[in-house]
Every structure is written in structure tokens, then in C-alpha cells.
């Protein structure tokens, strides 16, 4: 069997993810980077682009990302909360912004969308806690439902805001 030995260098990073590591250590081939592992000089295969992630894994990371987005978005939510209850003028300012200001509408829709996804995925987690859908098929099905329901809610939120 003919074997061709075409070798291509792997992308390497010095992004180390363990406390005891070598921040800023650069290998000689500096365009490339190597993932280094726990206390060891050995490389680690953690090139996420080469790993296949099934749907439940994707909904899980999206749940985390929407959570962080919501935390940052609390600033806007609290501003609106504060202003809308401060005085009739404040209330008018908030409802005016939500009715006419493009940026305000965009932020509102973005946060509502993140909330919709995080909410639905959260329900999925609560169901898993009571042992519903913890099988391979069940997990995939719940992830699919999460995406579909979230998409619907996001569209509805868009209609509401815009």
C-alpha cells in the first residue's frame, strides 16, 4: 500500500489552561502554538475545531454564553428599571427610547433573545435534574426542542420590540 508522507505542521498555541504553566512561552515556530497540559511538557490535543460537538453540547455552551450576556445586560435592565420608576418623565424617556431609538431596540431585542434561550435551556436542565430526557436520544431531542422554541420566542420578541 503506497504511503505518502506529506507532513503539515499543526497550529500550536501557548494558551495554557493549567495554573502551573508557561505564560508567554513561545516555541521556535512562533506562528504556531502548542496546547500544554497539566504540569507536563507534553502537548495536548485540544484543537476544538477538530472535535465534533453534538447538538446537546452546542446548546450547553450557548446556555453559558447567553448567561454571561445577560449578566452584562443587567446594566441596561437596571437602568430601564430605575428610570421608568423614577418619575413620569423618566418613564416617558424609557418608553420613548424603546419605541424610537434604534440602539435601544437592538439592545432590548438582543437581551430578550438571550433571555429566551437561557430560559428554555434552563427548563431543559431542570427536566434533566428530575431524570427526564437523560438518554442519548432524549438529550438530542430536548436540545432540538430548545433550539426551535427559542427561535420562535426570539422572533416573537423581535416582533414585539420592532
Amino acid at each position: 500500500m503506497p504511503v505518502s508522507a506529506a507532513a503539515s505542521p499543526l497550529p500550536q498555541t501557548t494558551a495554557c489552561f493549567h495554573p502551573v504553566c508557561l505564560p508567554g512561552a513561545v516555541t521556535e515556530a512562533s506562528q504556531e502554538s502548542v496546547y500544554r497540559a497539566v504540569n507536563s511538557k507534553r502537548p495536548v490535543n485540544l484543537d476544538l475545531t477538530t472535535i465534533h460537538f453534538p447538538l446537546p453540547a452546542l446548546t450547553s455552551i450557548a446556555h453559558r454564553i447567553t448567561g454571561v450576556i445577560l449578566f452584562i445586560g443587567l446594566i441596561f435592565a437596571f437602568w430601564a428599571f430605575d428610570k421608568s420608576l423614577s418619575s413620569p418623565a423618566g418613564f416617558a424617556a424609557v418608553s420613548d427610547a424603546l419605541a424610537h431609538n434604534f440602539l435601544a431596540k437592538l439592545i432590548a431585542w438582543g437581551l430578550l433573545s438571550a433571555l429566551a434561550f437561557h430560559f428554555v435551556a434552563g427548563i431543559k436542565h431542570l427536566l434533566m435534574d428530575i431524570d427526564i430526557g437523560v438518554t442519548l436520544e432524549g438529550g438530542v431531542k430536548k436540545a432540538q426542542i430548545t433550539v426551535v422554541v427559542s427561535a420562535v420566542l426570539i422572533i416573537l420578541a423581535g416582533v414585539w420590540v420592532w
Partner: peptide, 29 residues
């Protein structure tokens, strides 16, 4: 988990309130 349930209920309440009161004014709010 418990805080999630509380927040879920609160979210549903606020969203429902805003949806069912389209002409909301400062006095009601």
C-alpha cells in the same frame, strides 16, 4: 436551581404584565 425557578416565575410575570398592558403609563407601573 431554586433561584432559577424564582427568576423564571418573575420573568413570566413581567413579560405577561407588559404584554397584557400595552398602553401602560407611569401611574400603573
Amino acid at each position: 436551581r431554586v433561584s432559577a425557578l424564582i427568576l423564571a416565575l418573575y420573568t413570566l410575570f413581567i413579560v405577561a404584565y407588559l404584554l397584557f398592558n400595552p398602553g401602560l403609563d407611569y401611574a400603573a407601573w
